[in-house]
Design a protein around this nucleic acid. Structure first.
Lengths: 290, 290
DNA sequence: CTGAAAGCGCTTACAG
DNA sequence: CTGAAAGCGCTTACAG
């Protein structure tokens, strides 16, 4: 008959929109794309549509996005918080009584539900593998100053090295933008330094790829043991195939979706923190042979 | 005062939601991620929020997504049609008087506004460059049977080869899933064949990367001249750096967003087809030296 | 058990 | 020019 249910009218009456807000820092990032895919699929399964906003990792843009979400009366919110998001934002969510889940990045106040990877463990897994290869010095390459995932991973690396009896000075680090360009710049800086580390743990696969570009340009592709992070699709195709810490963005997004749906159902439920264990995927960039 | 405008209530009165539907085939695809980023930015600028749905390139899922979009009374729709979408779908849009823009893929009936890359030109640019390198035989690697972008690109390749006086038999092709795995399988098949072509044009950079994995595994990385497609971020970092056809997903998405906003403003406007000229980005996989 | 009415929060045409 | 009222399309509590 051509009749189409008007969900907006129903919303006015029931105060539920069947729409969930998803606020991300950078859609074009392949890893976040995977997270978003898992999230969307799970929300759809529960009957929610996804209202998307990309903040470009900018807090002001994020503020505007959240305002839109409120005006649209979303039933819940999944948020990858932009760098520099004040923890006070979470108090506002509580005030608005907006069910929400933090994804992939948490805020230090820690009073929100959160689904992310266990970064301390990820750093540890990478470091332990390099130590098995006999590395005595390790460099942590890239990531933005102050982000928690970097801090946590470095913590895991440091713990593993300390347990192996290495001094704190055996772990060096440098800050670079999380991108191929960042990795390229970081790789050049590393090559320009007075001595090379035995192994490098990169903050992302894109950084690892940039590092390799610098190594190839210097004709020194096999001079370092390298481990990437995220295990994006291209990692397995890379030459050498990248050993990487897999964080399984899709299932992480799906878990966040499930948790959010649960919280929308029971807004008084308790805060849940899920840290998914990452996995070391061994290929050849670490020096292993296939 | 804690007051928040209820856009849903206004919608009921004004019949405008300030929400635009964006239906994509695969969010996790980095190229579509870029398109989506440009689209979202442009829609936001015009005051629209983005209601996202991922169809996984499945027509039934797409049907459900479109139903949701209608129930939510989106003001307009940007659609990357799923493979196998019937052209009759566009008639339905007209019936619903839903302003819409096709993005990246078109439907053969051609009665919709469309923003995409000029694939015939893209194929031609790649082929002409290989011909300048002296290639006499070219293989078009990958892409799904029957998709228009593949057909158009092959058309461009064929035209350039014909103009160079080569016989039709000089152009061969094979069908593979658009992914690294597809490229890997395609590369192995190519190596198993009786003779190698002089040059290979890949349907995507991911296919080119898979092809290189097959070549590396066979110890034959420099045996072919290779051109990729899309110019994703990793292309410049690849070894050898990938020569690729850049389609600039972000600006394509932005153009689609602008066109859609325009059509929402004037629903009786005429059908507009924008084919953005792709660009050949020369690096080293084609045999050029930097 | 059925059906008419009220009301969600806006906008807009209309009366004063 | 200002302000009260109607109405968008649903859902739900209530009267019959």
């Amino acid at each position: 008959m051509g009749y189409v249910y008007n969900r907006g009218a129903a919303t006015l009456r029931t105060q539920r929109t069947s729409v969930v807000g998803v606020v991300v820092t950078h859609i074009a990032n392949p890893y976040f794309g995977e997270v978003l895919g898992g999230l969307d699929a799970e929300l759809k399964r529960a009957g929610f549509a996804t209202l998307l906003a990309d903040t470009g990792d900018d807090v002001d843009e994020q503020r505007r996005a959240l305002q839109t979400m409120r005006e649209q009366r979303v039933d819940g919110l999944a948020l990858i918080p932009a760098t520099g998001t004040p923890a006070a934002l979470l108090d506002e969510f509580a005030e608005w009584s907006l069910p929400h889940v933090l994804v992939s990045r948490y805020l230090d106040d820690g009073n929100s539900s959160y689904v992310g990877a266990d970064d301390v463990l990820g750093g540890r897994l990478a470091a332990e593998h390099l130590l098995e290869h006999g590395c005595r010095t390790i460099h942590y390459l890239g990531g933005i100053e102050g982000i928690l995932s970097r801090r946590d991973r470095i913590r895991g690396v440091g713990a593993a090295m300390a347990e192996a009896g290495l001094p704190a000075s055996a772990l060096t680090r440098s800050v670079w933008e999380v991108s191929g360009q960042g990795g390229l710049a970081g790789g050049r800086a590393l090559l320009d330094g007075e001595s090379l580390p035995d192994g490098v743990i990169c903050h992302s696969d894109s950084i690892a790829m940039g590092l390799y570009r610098a190594l190839y340009d210097a004709g020194a592709a096999d001079v370092l043991r390298v481990i990437g992070y995220d295990d994006v699709a291209a990692a397995a195709l890379w030459e050498p195939p990248l050993t990487s810490i897999a964080t399984h963005g899709g299932s992480l997004g799906a878990a966040a979706g499930r948790l959010l749906v649960e919280r929308i159902g029971q807004p008084r439920g308790q805060v849940v923190v899920q840290r998914a264990a990452p996995e070391l995927v061994v290929r050849r960039s670490c020096g292993c042979h296939s």
